[in-house]
Design a protein around this nucleic acid. Sequence first.
RNA 1: GGCGAAGUAGCUCAGCUGGUUAGAGCACCGGAAUCAUAAUCCGGGUGUCGGCGGUUCAAGUCCGCCCUUCGCUACCA
Length: 564
Amino acid sequence: MSRILITSALPYINGVKHLGNMVGSMLPADVYARFQRARGHEVLCICATDEHGTPAELAALEAGQDVATYCAEQHQIQKDIGVRFGFSWDYFGRSSSPENRELTQHFCEKLDEAGLIEERVDEQVYSVDDGRFLPDRYIVGTCPKCGYENARGDQCENCTSVLDPVDLIDARSAISGGVNLEVRASRHLYLLQSKMVDRLRAWIDSKTDWPVLVTSIARKWLDEGLHDRCITRDLDWGIPVSRPGFENKVFYVWFDAPIEYIGATREWADEAPGSRDWKSWWYGEAAQDVRYVQFMGKDNVPFHSIGFPTTLLGSGEPWKVVDYIKGFNWLTYYGGKFSTSQKRGVFMDQALEILPADYWRYYLMANAPEGSDASFTWEHFAGTINKDLADVLGNFVNRTLRFTKSKFGEAVPDGGMPGAAEANLIKELDARLEAYTQHFERMEFRKAVAELRAIWASGNEYLTVAEPWAKFKQDRDAAAIGVRTGINLIRLFALLSQPVIPTISGKMLEALGVSGDDAAWPTGPAAALLEALKPGHPFTVPDVLVQKIEDAQVAEWTARFGGA
RNA sequence: GGCGAAGUAGCUCAGCUGGUUAGAGCACCGGAAUCAUAAUCCGGGUGUCGGCGGUUCAAGUCCGCCCUUCGCUACCA
């Protein structure tokens, strides 16, 4: 048994996330956490809301709330939705916690001691009408290169030129529209990432098993020359900078957000200080045996492969640095971006309104954007759910248990001996069990789910050969071995499916009267697994496990959420 | 513009360090079966592996150029 620390990119506080956000972070992190727990490892799965920054302030403003209240509410909403999706977090924290405040300030002090912090004076745009400094993107105006009238201060969406806000013609605040903009000088702290380049490169070079997606993004940043990064902001909402002359400033959200992985672990420990030791997961000798895995979409990779490691390594203290980064591409909606503003795509709360969590979990993991971007369409989604979950798995459970009940009653029957059909099944299962487990170990989710589906299908193939319904007419015992094997297959399928579809899996185990305590990860030999439930073991026939999706529903949802 | 990823059967995707007749699932066609959510099982693919050229005994798999799509380009998180 080993210890595995799992974190997923923190969902930003300003509203419920869409499926495209979830599929690359929280969902695979949960699937992996469930898998490793079943394998018998000690897992700590941590997530939190990322609550600082200008967008949070503006969202609160729009909601007519003060930002602290807004964040508290949104945190609870996101937490509830996550729980309803089956996310088995050990702790879901908040980057605005006192624990994170202390840690963030601590890291800044340590980085300073290590000579990696420098004060510099910046000139930034200040909006008199809004009473605040504005990030580049919140200044709009006419693009000096193409004349587009709504170009943002960081980049023109029309001609894609990279801009500086002071170059905009007729610049105005994107928030208030106010034109009273001034360039004001402001003192800030810079993290001297440039001094860490060699160390970071050596570290990245040592990660030969990481996805190409991740290392290529990290190398790109190193190759282009790491800029020093400003880690403070002129905002009210955030972690205060404890330093003379910085009384009205807070840390940049991207500085404190990753630190919240540690902060949330402390929050978790602070709930039960007698029995939980946060430091043993993160610091020094005690954390030597921890394997730390992060999950995120590709947009987050630079901050996790460069930014956060700079903080940890640069501190000069023995903090645990990530061992493996699992990065994902985008999930697209009919080939285009999921978009809040254009009302394209499905958000987590909406998804749960229309179908159970397991449907989404299964589809999204089966089609995870691992090798490249992947496309979500309602037609593909419905087809996958109906075929894989309802027909191949759900119907297998139903046909097996109903037939057994009608001929033998509601208990595993005795009689009969394994023969050629069982031998073939066992041979196939032994191979597939190994492959399935390996795919999960390597975090190859698409392949894992494809293997899982093949394992379910092997049950149907077996029944076709065993044909207990035909044998029963002449030879009761020959039929008995068939259904006994079938019922044990249901147990096996439930145990194997649990990381992906925990609710359905739970219903299968419940029907068989198997407690969660016996739900350890099944390892071969398959022959023994198929004799786990002995003759006489009672069962019940559950309701239909997976309801099919109708064409009419596909049409309705396509219209509601924006289709092709 | 620069950089990165990718373009493989109707659809969604596998194909590691180059090597027998390029694979899977879905869809489609045919057959079997009838325990089951009309659910299952078996069989069926003449695909210019984006295009052109090159290296090699041998290239989807390496090199160059071109076309297309998507992303990043660092104070939006």
